[in-house]
Amino acid sequence: MLRPYLHLVRAGFRRHSIYLAASLAGLFTNTVFGLLRVAVLLAVVGQTGSAAGYDAADTGTFVWLGQGLLAVVMIWPDRELAQRVRSGDVAIDLGRPWNLQPALLAQDLGRAGHAMLIRFGPPVLFGALVLPFRWPHSPWTVLVFALSTVLAVVISFAARFLLDLTAFWLLDNRGVATVYAAATGVLCGLTVPVAYFPDPIRIALYATPFPAMLQTPIDVFGERGATAALLGHQVLWAALLLAAGQLVLARATRKLVVQGG
């Protein structure tokens, strides 16, 4: 039952390992953005020694983990499925003896695994060596961080899957995807820690899945906040978004008309 999905995880990993040059170029860009972002945030911290509970080392850790996880979690949608919906190729995907959502999730986990090796390690190591950085105190934290990162990938995938499904109704979902991509950077804690936000906005943000995609694994690594609550929030959103994906997929499949030829 599970075997084919495990194969898909491997296939996702191998597919992305082919484009090593692309990964390296992405790495360079992540590192430049990391350096610029950390400079701005350190200027904020520098005056008082800490801001919103972040000192210099916390800030470095926040920026470099964010730049590293960005490609792993893939907070910006690639619209691959949406384009298959538009072209009609999705009919082939739906005809295969699998459930489309877990099949794509398996491939996405493989992709994320590859990104973890190539896109996460180097910027984090670079940041840790060159700038103030805070390693976790407890060795267990690394394990919990791994779990939290997997959950973050699942949540991000489930959100992107729903986004792609809008193409069944809109045909061209580029506008929706642009708005999503534009908003995630600030909402999930890539550009500025969620803790910086004024309280009402911060609380409202946790009523959305966005912080669970990036800020939560970073918080787990930085050992801030109650781990159980953070992981619970992630599990809840993963379950909700995956279930919503199944529901919408079922409706979309019923709507789909395959025209011959």
Binding site: V40, L41, V44, Q47, T48, A51, A52, T178, V179, A181, A182, A183, G185, V186, T191, V192, Y196, F197, P198
Partner: peptide
């Protein structure tokens, strides 16, 4: 919205300093 991202960052940062 993409452009306003950095605007949001500036406003949030100045809530701190």
């Amino acid at each position: 919205i993409a452009q306003a991202n950095e605007l949001a960052v500036i406003l949030i940062v100045f809530a701190q300093v």
